Computed example of a mutant assay.
Amino acid sequence: MASISRGSAPDPRLLFADLVRCETRLYNALNERLRERHGIVTSQYEFLRHLREHPGCRVADLAAEFAIGIGATSKGIDRLERHGWVARQPNPADRRSSLLVLTDDGVRMVDAAERTFTERVTELIEGALDRTRAAAVAEALALLRTALERDQIGMPTG
């Protein structure tokens, strides 16, 4: 059940529950739409989008961006590579790692999936929040994320 706090400090337990449940429900709704239209899930879309915006990053860079383990990230990239959407190239600065780049098929996939993603997330947010509230939520989450990332909170250990 959602908590609503008007004017007083929110109960941190309820705030946490609301944040987590919203994230889970949004993620699931986006998974459903992306799978239906493109045969991918949200995590794959997010990896592809990040690689489009940051060509030549490494698996470790992706893991840090998404605050997930390197092993899980590498497995996710392996799946994208098998689909022909991502290629690993030798890293000239470090022979132990590879640089990740989108293939032409990967660019086409992420561009098509982005339209679907944007359409669906917009529907979900606009269906619940007016522009003023959506802007306030976006600002609050950006501040919280900035503080967590600045202090390296919640980074996986492996």
Results as ranks from 00 to 15, higher is better:
18 D>S: 12
19 L>T: 12
20 V>A: 12
20 V>N: 13
22 C>A: 15
23 E>P: 10
24 T>Q: 15
24 T>D: 14
24 T>M: 14
25 R>T: 13
25 R>I: 12
27 Y>R: 15
27 Y>Q: 15
27 Y>T: 15
28 N>Y: 14
28 N>D: 15
29 A>C: 04
30 L>P: 03
31 N>K: 14
32 E>K: 11
34 L>I: 10
35 R>G: 07
36 E>S: 13
36 E>G: 02
37 R>K: 10
37 R>T: 09
39 G>Y: 00
39 G>N: 04
39 G>V: 00
41 V>K: 13
41 V>Q: 14
42 T>N: 14
42 T>P: 10
42 T>G: 08
43 S>C: 12
45 Y>R: 01
45 Y>A: 02
45 Y>F: 02
46 E>G: 07
47 F>D: 07
48 L>I: 04
50 H>A: 09
50 H>W: 02
51 L>R: 02
51 L>P: 01
51 L>F: 02
52 R>T: 07
53 E>K: 13
55 P>R: 00
55 P>Q: 00
57 C>N: 06
57 C>G: 13
58 R>K: 08
60 A>P: 06
61 D>F: 02
63 A>Q: 08
65 E>I: 12
66 F>W: 09
67 A>W: 10
67 A>C: 14
70 I>A: 11
71 G>Q: 13
71 G>F: 12
72 A>W: 04
72 A>V: 07
73 T>W: 04
74 S>A: 14
75 K>E: 07
75 K>N: 05
75 K>W: 12
76 G>T: 03
76 G>C: 13
77 I>W: 02
78 D>K: 07
79 R>A: 07
79 R>K: 05
81 E>A: 09
81 E>F: 06
82 R>I: 02
83 H>F: 05
83 H>R: 15
83 H>W: 07
84 G>C: 10
84 G>D: 12
86 V>P: 05
86 V>T: 06
88 R>Y: 06
89 Q>R: 15
89 Q>I: 05
90 P>K: 05
90 P>S: 03
90 P>Y: 03
90 P>H: 04
91 N>W: 01
92 P>E: 06
93 A>I: 01
94 D>P: 12
95 R>A: 06
95 R>Q: 11
96 R>E: 08
96 R>F: 02
98 S>P: 13
99 L>I: 03
99 L>C: 11
99 L>Y: 06
100 L>S: 03
100 L>D: 01
102 L>W: 00
102 L>F: 03
104 D>I: 02
104 D>E: 07
104 D>P: 04
106 G>T: 03
106 G>F: 01
107 V>E: 11
107 V>I: 04
107 V>Q: 08
108 R>C: 09
109 M>P: 00
109 M>Q: 05
110 V>E: 03
110 V>N: 08
110 V>R: 04
111 D>T: 12
111 D>F: 05
112 A>V: 02
112 A>N: 11
113 A>V: 00
113 A>C: 01
113 A>D: 00
114 E>P: 01
117 F>I: 00
119 E>Y: 01
119 E>G: 03
120 R>D: 00
123 E>L: 01
123 E>Q: 04
123 E>G: 03
123 E>C: 05
124 L>E: 06
124 L>P: 00
125 I>P: 06
125 I>F: 10
125 I>C: 10
126 E>H: 15
126 E>T: 13
128 A>I: 13
128 A>K: 10
129 L>C: 14
129 L>H: 11
130 D>L: 08
130 D>H: 06
131 R>D: 08
131 R>P: 06
132 T>V: 14
132 T>E: 09
133 R>K: 12
133 R>D: 13
135 A>P: 01
136 A>L: 13
